[in-house]
């Protein structure tokens, strides 16, 4: 996209925005205001979305259930404040952590993630898994190298070498215990 095209898009976007301001301000009318400066197709789409995308309301039962839950959380938060007031600690702004259901998994709802679509992928899990695998591999390799250097009789078969290693380990364990 050339700078000229980009500027053109921004100007069109600004015109669209101004039109939407007026459309959304007109409650109860089927059509938005006439606007010669805006593409008629965009105007029709805006009018259609304003008409068809309506707010979805929760059930009354849910509303009251959540209100009760919040009231309980608020009461729990007020309790420490009341205790503080009784001991002369003073009032003021109450700081509390009532959202246990949110905080349990370590998720901070205030930590912004500008690209939350990417969060739908289990990236941290994959990274964690890779790191764990790498750590296991490094530890395994270190143990193998140590064993290779310590082993006697390099020409023996793997089974013999393993038996010797076990015997050596037993010896070392016995010496340590005595």
């Amino acid at each position: 996209m050339t700078p000229f095209e980009r500027d053109g898009t921004e100007v069109e976007a600004l015109l669209t925005d101004l039109y939407l301001e007026r459309v959304l301000a007109r409650h109860g009318t089927d059509r938005g205001p006439a606007d010669a400066g805006l593409d008629p197709a965009l105007r029709r789409a805006s009018d259609r979305l304003r008409r068809d995308l309506t707010r979805v309301h929760p059930s009354f039962r849910f509303e009251e259930r959540l209100a009760l839950r919040l009231a309980e959380a608020a009461a729990a938060a007020r309790l420490p404040a009341a205790v503080g007031a009784g001991t002369g600690a003073g009032g003021g702004v109450v700081t509390f952590r009532g959202g246990a259901s949110v905080a349990n998994d370590g998720f901070d709802p205030l930590a912004d993630d500008p690209d939350d679509e990417r969060r739908e992928l289990p990236v941290p899990l994959l990274i964690g898994g890779a790191l764990t695998s790498a750590a296991i591999s490094i530890a395994g390799a270190a143990a193998y190298v140590a064993w290779r250097w310590a082993r006697p009789g390099r020409g023996a078969s793997p089974m013999v070498r393993a038996a010797r290693a076990v015997r050596e380990a037993h010896r070392a364990g016995g010496a340590a215990s005595t």
Binding site: L66, R69, A73, G99, S101
Partner: peptide, 9 residues
């Protein structure tokens, strides 16, 4: 629910 509990907390 999580949103409002987090906002309150």
């Amino acid at each position: 629910e999580r949103t409002f509990l987090a906002a309150l907390a």
